[in-house]
Design a protein around this nucleic acid. Structure first.
Lengths: 244, 244
DNA sequence: AAAATTTAATTGTCAGACAATTAAATATCG
DNA sequence: CGATATTTAATTGTCTGACAATTAAATTTT
C-alpha cells in the first residue's frame, strides 16, 4: 500500500491520517490486519513511538483495535452502532456544554427530531416498546425519586420513543439530541406538581402511540415541548431575579 | 487534581479516560492548560511515552490541542461545531459502510429527519438560503455534470434545507444523516430524465419553502423520498438480474 | 529604545531495551 | 498414538534516556 503524506504537521498525525483515509475509502477492510508496528516504522521511515502515537489516535476513534501476542497486531475495527452511539453522545454533550447552547435551541432540536420519529414509531412500535414506556412512566410517578433519576428516566422514555421507530440510523442520529440535553434538564427542579404534569404528557404520548394516532401523538409531543420550555424559562427567570 | 484509574486496561487508556472524565465533568475547563507531560509522568507514575499515547488519544477526539515551546503544553480544546460536524460525518459514513445498512433504511432516516426541519425552515429561511437552493438546482440542471457532482450538489441542496432551520444543533445532528448517504447515492446512475425529475422536486421544495407552506413542503419532500427509493430499488433490481 | 541573542520550558522524534501476552511449535509423558 | 507440558517466536505495552524543534521570555548588544 502506498501512502501520501501531508507536510507541515506532526508525523504521527500524518501517519494516522494516511491510515484513516485507507480505512474510509475501503483499501483497508474490516478485520484486516495492519502491518506490525515495526513494519510501519519501515514503511513510513519513523520510529516506533511515532507509529504508536498514530495508532493510538486511530484506536481513540474506534477505527482499529489492537491485540498482543504472536498473532496479534492492529486490526481494522468494525464500528459498531454501540460505539457510534457512545461517540455521538460524548461529542454532543461536550458540544452543548462548551458552546453555551441555549436550552431553547437544544430543546427545539430535540423535539423537532423526535417528532420525525412519530410516523414510524406509530407504525412499528411493539408491545415491548409500549411496556418500556409505561415502565418509565411508572418510575417517574414514584414519590421518592431524585431529580437526577427523574431526568434519567425521562431520557429513557424518549429514547424508547425513538427506538420504537426501529430505524437504527435514526436511533443513532438522535442519540446525541436526546441524551445530551440531560445535563441541561438536570438544572431544573422537578416539584411533585411538575412531575405530575410531565407524567400526564408521557402517558398521553404512550396512549396515542398505542392507538396508532400520528396526529394526536404529534400534538401531545408538541405540548410537552412547550411545557418543557416553560419550565426552563422559569428557572432562567429565577436566576435572573436572584442576581438582581 | 485526583485521578481514579480503572484497572485491567492499558495504562495509556486509563490515563486518557481519567483526563477525559475530568474534561466532561467540568473539572478541566476550556483553554485550561493540562500539566506538562513530565508532570503527568509524576502524577500517574508512568513513563513519558505512556503519557504521550494518552494525550494523543485525547487529541484525536479534539478534546485537547498541543503547542510546543516555552509556554506550550496541552490545552483543553473548545469543541467547535465545525469539528463536531466533521467527526459526525466521518462516524456516520463509516457506520453505514461497515454495517451493511440498506439504502432504504438510510433513506428513510434522512427524509424523516429532514422533514423535522421543515416547520422551522419555513419560518426562518432567509433570501440567502433560498438563493443557495436555487443555485444548486440550477447546477443540477446543467447538462455536462458528472454523476458525482450531481450527488454532491444534491447533498448541498439538502444541507441548505437543514441549515435554513437555523438551529445549529439540528444542523449538527443531521450532518451525518445528510452527508453519509452520499456514497450510497453515488452508486446510482442519474440519466438526464432522472435528473429532470429530481430537479423538479427540488424546485417544488424551494417554491413551497419560499411560499412558507409547511404542508406543501412536506408533501414535496415525501414525494422526493419515494422517488429516491424507487431509483435505488431499480439499481438493486439491475444488480440482481445481472447476477442471474 | 530597538534589535539581536541567549535561555529555559515544552512538545516532537528517535533508539534501544525489557516486560507481558499469545498462538504455534516442540517436547514430554502415559 | 494422544494428551499435556514446555519452549519459542512474534507482537504489543512500557520504560529510559537522549536530542531536535519550537516558542516565549529574559538578557545582552547596538
Amino acid at each position: 500500500m502506498k501512502y501520501e503524506l501531508d507536510q507541515d504537521k506532526e508525523l504521527s498525525t500524518q501517519i494516522s491520517s494516511a491510515i484513516r483515509d485507507n480505512i474510509i475509502n475501503g483499501q483497508l477492510i474490516v478485520n484486516q490486519r495492519l502491518p506490525s508496528e515495526s513494519e510501519l516504522c519501515d514503511q513510513f521511515d519513523v520510529s516506533r513511538s511515532t507509529v504508536r502515537e498514530a495508532l493510538k489516535r486511530l484506536a481513540a476513534q474506534n477505527l482499529i483495535r489492537t491485540q498482543r501476542g504472536a498473532t496479534g497486531g492492529a486490526f481494522v475495527n468494525k464500528l459498531s452502532f454501540k460505539d457510534a452511539y457512545r461517540q455521538q453522545i460524548t461529542t454532543s454533550t461536550l458540544l452543548l456544554s462548551m458552546n453555551a447552547v441555549s436550552f431553547e435551541t437544544a430543546c427545539e432540536a430535540r423535539f423537532a427530531l423526535e417528532r420525525a420519529c412519530i410516523p414510524l414509531a406509530v407504525k412499528r412500535r411493539t408491545p415491548d416498546h409500549l411496556a418500556s414506556m409505561r415502565a418509565e412512566i411508572h418510575r417517574q410517578a414514584q414519590p421518592g425519586l431524585t431529580d437526577e433519576s427523574f431526568c434519567a428516566s425521562d431520557v429513557a422514555f424518549h429514547r424508547t420513543l425513538v427506538d420504537s421507530a426501529q430505524n437504527p440510523i435514526m436511533s443513532y442520529q438522535l442519540a446525541g439530541a436526546v441524551e445530551a440535553i440531560e445535563p441541561l434538564m438536570n438544572m431544573i427542579t422537578f416539584t411533585a406538581r411538575k412531575r405530575e404534569k410531565i407524567v400526564a404528557y408521557h402517558t398521553k404520548i404512550a396512549d396515542t402511540i398505542q392507538a396508532k394516532d400520528v396526529l394526536a401523538t404529534e400534538t401531545a409531543l408538541a405540548a410537552l415541548a412547550a411545557h418543557t420550555l416553560d419550565l426552563a424559562n422559569e428557572v432562567a427567570d429565577q436566576r435572573k431575579s436572584r442576581k438582581s
